[in-house]
Amino acid sequence: MAFALLTLLSAVVGVTLSYPAAFQDLGGNGNNRTSIRFLAFGDWGGLPSAPYVTTVQTATAQEMSVVAERMGADFILALGDNFYFKGVESVDSPRFQETFESVYTSKYLRVPWYVVAGNHDHAGNVKAQIEYSQRKFPSYYYELNFHIPNTGKTLTIIMLDTVILCGHSDDFTDEKLRGPLRAVDANRQLVWLQERLAQSKADFLLVAGHYPVWSISEHGPTKCLLKKVRPLLLKHNVTAYLCGHDHNLQYLEESGVGYVVSGAGNFLDSDTSHLKRVPKDSLKFFTGQSSTKGGFVHAEVTNNKLFLTYFQSKGTSLFRTVLSQRQFV
């Protein structure tokens, strides 16, 4: 394969991760720099039949390459729904070539891809994505740690499987979460999350999953995450939560936590039907217009700031915001 899809999921749900998680190697790119850069996008999984891609997906991939070349990208966070509409069935699925390798061909995108599974992935065989990655980790959820080059500061990203945590969503029927398939697995992940957040001393702490905590669009806020995850984000002074699921770009901010919705990798949806279900004045940016031709987020983490820039695929930035490093009492 052209380059490894570092799914970093797992074939075994019930195994606990070792502590502390190892720090990721940025390679030679960190020698003369003082920041980490990455791209974040979700819902990029093409189509299950010819031509196996959408125009939004190809346009987004092209602009991701342009931005990665100009602004830098050490890795990519892929936020779920990696293969529409029912994931893949086996490690030999042609979809890996048709929807992934044949699209993200730029040398600037040949960086580690850290991926979580979305509801459409769970409709198929998530283990096949794990096997394809050729990289085994002991859980569908995992932790990434990075040294920010030449600063003495650290970045931690906690990757969640929100489908295991909250249940499956069938976008073709009632779209409602059905609750976790196995309560024991959901609880185990939640306990793990609590422990990792409580122990983290990272200067920047991000959490990423597929389902949104807050969203004004079609799926709206996820009740399960509002109950189980949002209190932990607030308690442990998490910098930001990143997700997909709704097919647009949003930025919300509540109680000092940034909420990034970046689900415009394959389709676009301008729906704002849940605008009144988010906290007042929390919405800072939204676009789901077809004229954007898709989009994604570029992040840069420096010694004391997290810069988030939203790009549309037709070649311009749409919104930028800045978050500060965590403060410990």
Rank of each mutant, 00 (worst) to 15 (best):
Ala4Tyr: 10
Leu5Pro: 01
Gly14Ala: 11
Thr16Glu: 13
Tyr19Gly: 00
Asp25Asn: 12
Gly28Asn: 12
Asn31Lys: 15
Asn32Ser: 11
Ile36Trp: 01
Arg37Trp: 03
Ala40Met: 09
Ala40Glu: 03
Trp44Ala: 11
Gly46Thr: 05
Val56Gly: 03
Gln57Pro: 03
Thr58Lys: 12
Ala59Met: 07
Glu63Phe: 06
Ser65Pro: 01
Leu77Lys: 06
Leu77Phe: 03
Asn82Val: 08
Lys86Cys: 04
Lys86Asn: 15
Glu89Trp: 07
Ser90Thr: 13
Asp92Ile: 00
Pro94Gly: 08
Pro94Ser: 10
Glu98Leu: 15
Phe100Asp: 03
Glu101Lys: 05
Ser102Gln: 07
Tyr104Pro: 02
Thr105Glu: 03
Lys107Leu: 06
Val115Gln: 08
His122Ser: 12
Ala123Phe: 12
Gly124Asp: 09
Gln129Lys: 11
Ile130Glu: 14
Tyr132Met: 08
Ser133Cys: 11
Arg135Asp: 14
Ser139Arg: 15
Tyr140Met: 08
Tyr140Gln: 14
Glu143Asp: 11
Glu143Cys: 10
Leu144Arg: 12
Ile148Arg: 10
Asn150Val: 09
Thr154Tyr: 05
Met159Gly: 06
Leu160Cys: 05
Leu160Thr: 09
Asp161Ile: 06
Asp161Glu: 04
Thr162Asp: 12
Val163Cys: 08
Val163Gln: 11
Val163Tyr: 03
Leu165Gln: 15
Leu165Lys: 09
His168Asp: 15
Ser169Ala: 15
Thr173Ser: 13
Lys176Gly: 02
Lys176Thr: 10
Arg182Leu: 14
Val184His: 09
Val184Leu: 14
Ala186Lys: 09
Gln189Asp: 09
Ser200Ala: 02
Lys201Trp: 03
Ala202Ile: 03
Gly209Leu: 04
Gly209Thr: 04
Tyr211Glu: 13
Val213His: 12
Lys223Ile: 03
Leu225Trp: 02
Leu225Met: 13
Leu226Phe: 10
Lys227Ala: 12
Tyr241Met: 06
Gly244Glu: 07
Gly244Leu: 06
Asp246Thr: 01
Asp246Glu: 05
Asp246Cys: 06
His247Gly: 07
Leu249Gln: 07
Glu254His: 13
Val257Trp: 10
Gly258Val: 00
Val260Arg: 08
Ala264Leu: 10
Gly265Met: 08
Gly265Gln: 09
Phe267Arg: 14
His274Gln: 12
Pro279Gly: 02
Lys280Glu: 14
Ser282Phe: 08
Leu283Phe: 03
Phe286Leu: 01
Thr287Asp: 14
Gln289Leu: 11
Gln289Asp: 13
Gly294Asn: 00
His298Trp: 15
Thr302Val: 06
Asn304Met: 05
Lys305Phe: 10
Leu306Phe: 05
Tyr310Glu: 03
Gln312Tyr: 01
Ser313Lys: 02
Lys314Asn: 13
Val322Ala: 01
Ser324Phe: 07
Arg326Met: 00
